[in-house]
Design a protein around this nucleic acid. Structure first.
Length: 277
DNA sequence: ACCCTCACCTGCACGC
DNA sequence: TGCGTGCAGGTGAGGG
């Protein structure tokens, strides 16, 4: 489910919940989750490790453990962490369980089984495939207007597709890509290289605004991993969705009917009046 | 190098 | 009730 703001929320919640805890034992019920590592190797390397920090790179959650290793986790569509006490029942699709030294369990569940976990040496993280190709963090100085202008100018893909490419623009997914384009009043089917240079700053600002507002909106909900009930991502920041899942509804800015089209395999929503070609 | 389509999975909502 | 279809917030492999 998650795009960068949701991942950031999980990182903060994990930080509160597990930093300083030691992993006593690990169980993995879905070997492909941690492939190509073997389950035995994975368990052995994590055994008795202190969790020293939790950070993020793009949509990867980085759980730092002793002996300078990092557990890089990607939630993909349906991955989620939760904290259980020793007598809570395991939820469906719980594929990895980390037993902590305070009698709680950190559980990774994933209905669609797309999520991945890789235990890598900290020194090799930056050169790890899947991570080394990622674009600059959207709130870093490296993600500048000049960077975006240069990136757009080199692509003949549509803006919608380009915004979903994590090696070009980091952090957006299908919802926030649509929201950012709406906010910038740019048509999703516009060829990236053909976007007028004077509109690049608007798009740049819209990307940061959408991601920033979502991070703030989720953070204000003060959700944590110990109380997963009642936690629906959609619910957490639904109010800021202005076009996503609003096909046929009136545009909040101009009243025209929001349209939806399948493009590059994904639903794309836009306002035909605010976001003319 | 680029870009598209499909594949990876389960589950849910919908129409017949 | 069941069954088929389409859809879901992500990405990677493989092909043109």
């Amino acid at each position: 489910m998650p795009e960068l703001p949701e991942v950031e929320h999980v990182v903060r919640a994990l930080r509160r919940a597990v930093v300083g805890r030691r992993i006593i034992a690990t169980e993995v019920g879905l070997p492909k989750l941690i492939a190509p590592s073997s389950v035995n190797n994975f368990r052995r390397k994590l055994k008795d490790s202190l969790i020293t920090g939790v950070s993020r790179r793009g949509k990867f959650i980085l759980i730092e453990v002793e002996s300078d290793r990092v557990l890089a986790v990607h939630l993909r569509m349906t991955g989620a962490f939760m904290i259980l006490t020793s007598d809570d029942e395991l939820p469906r699709h719980a594929h990895a369980v980390f037993y902590l030294d305070d009698d709680r369990r950190l559980v990774f569940k994933d209905q669609r089984q797309f999520g991945i976990m890789r235990l890598v040496a900290r020194s090799r993280l930056a050169s790890t495939k899947g991570i080394c190709e990622l674009a600059p963090e959207p709130f870093s100085e490296d993600f500048s207007i000049a960077y975006l202008r240069e990136t757009l100018s080199r692509s003949r893909r549509t803006l919608k597709t380009l915004l979903l490419d994590q090696t070009r623009v980091l952090g957006l997914g299908n919802i926030y890509a649509a929201e950012a384009l709406f906010r910038a009043r740019i048509n999703p089917f516009k060829i990236a290289a053909e976007l007028s240079p004077r509109r690049v700053p608007q798009l740049h600002q819209a990307i940061r605004d959408v991601l920033g507002a979502a991070v703030a909106g989720i953070s204000a909900k003060r959700l944590d991993l110990e109380n997963p009930n009642g936690f629906s991502y959609g619910e957490a920041f639904e109010r800021i969705w202005q076009v996503y899942e609003r096909e046929g509804e009136a545009c909040l800015k101009c009243g025209a009917r929001i349209r939806r089209m399948t493009h590059a395999g994904r639903s794309t929503y836009w306002c035909p009046r605010c976001q003319r070609r």
